[in-house]
């Protein structure tokens, strides 16, 4: 399978007054054409930074980035502009990611206007078509975002993201701010769009059940590193990394007969600023040994297509 997006040892460090923050610290991943890679992890694990790096909203500190097989790590501004037509992003908060002073149709038409390939009336037609695609009634064309609820607002940002027919979309927690009944509508919409237009998604979320539903494969992140990567069924059927296991056991299940096998993990996320050597998860890990605090585990393929970064599996 050809990979649509690939990163090799991608790193992003931020300089802060108290030291270097390792937001993304050597992430390698591949996303196949027409596939969805889910990225899960808790707040501060670097998943949003990773999304922004891949779409080049942020420059990386080290490592390389490929799109459609082409190295785009150091492309110039003009090339990047054209590349952006192919890659788009949907943000978490539909309240702050659309301009409150523009009407729905202006918001959706904005990327088309910038691209400047269509005439005014063609643009209007395209807007109408996009609204239909995302399930927005055309009577909302002239309304402003504040008049609509969260679900409809998220549909606007999806329509805007689709405007230029991108082949790759980064969805950063696109349903976290929505109610469950609306969340399901948007998740189904994203699935349909993928089937219809053959798009590739990077789907960032903290919600494991949502990621399971939408993704073909999953990457679990902890403090800037990928601790486990594999196909979705494999991850839920055979989780290997102690962090993944703890995460899975912590999810509340809407079934009163569900037997919870709780793996308590102690404490909270340690600081990503000047992290000590060794495994990032070691201070909270129920299985950590001395070695974990000294030597950083490398991500290894322990089974076909199943990558884990843990000394337990060496």
């Amino acid at each position: 399978m050809n990979s649509k997006v690939e990163t090799r040892d991608l790193k992003k460090y931020f300089q802060t007054p108290t030291g270097t923050l390792h937001a993304v610290d050597g992430v390698s991943l591949k996303i196949g054409e027409r596939q969805t890679l889910g990225v899960v992890g808790e707040s501060g694990c670097g998943k949003s930074t990773l999304g922004r790096l891949i779409i080049k909203l942020l420059g990386n500190t080290d490592g390389s980035l490929f799109f459609d097989g082409k190295d785009i790590t150091n492309i110039d501004k003009k090339e990047l502009r054209e590349l952006r037509w192919k890659m788009q992003m949907i943000f978490q908060d539909p309240y702050s990611s659309v301009n409150p002073r523009m009407t729905v149709s202006q918001i959706i038409a904005e990327p088309l206007k910038i691209q400047n390939k269509l005439t005014g009336s063609e643009r209007e037609e395209r807007v109408e078509e996009l609204m239909k695609t995302v399930g927005l009634d055309s009577r909302y064309r002239m309304t402003y975002p504040h008049e609509l609820d969260g679900g409809r607002r998220q549909r606007i940002s999806i329509a805007r993201a689709l405007a230029l027919n991108p082949s790759f979309i980064v969805c950063d927690e696109p349903v976290s701010a929505l109610d469950v009944s609306i969340q399901a509508q948007i998740l189904n919409l994203l699935k349909d769009l993928q089937d219809q237009f053959g798009m590739t998604f990077l789907f960032i979320s903290h919600n494991l059940a949502v990621v399971k539903y939408i993704s073909h494969s999953i990457m679990v992140m902890y403090l800037g590193v990928s601790v486990e990567q594999c196909q979705t069924e494999e991850l839920f059927g055979n989780p290997l990394h102690p962090y993944t296991r703890a995460l899975l056991s912590a999810v509340p299940v809407a079934d009163i007969h569900h037997q919870k096998k709780e793996i308590a993990i102690k404490g909270e996320l340690t600081s990503p600023i000047n992290p000590p050597p060794g495994c990032r998860f070691a201070p909270r890990c129920p299985c950590s040994s001395e070695r974990c605090f000294q030597e950083t585990p490398k991500q290894k393929e322990v089974k076909k297509g199943h990558l884990v970064a843990c000394h337990l599996y060496e």
Binding site: V180, S181, Q183, L187, N188, A209, K212, E233, A254, D255
Partner: peptide, 23 residues
């Protein structure tokens, strides 16, 4: 409808059954 809308971590659902419309 609420139960049909939430993805279940213990089961593989082909498709969620959301409640149409909004409040």
């Amino acid at each position: 409808g609420l139960f049909g809308s939430i993805p279940n971590i213990n089961a593989t659902a082909d498709r969620l059954q959301p409640i149409p419309g909004s409040m």
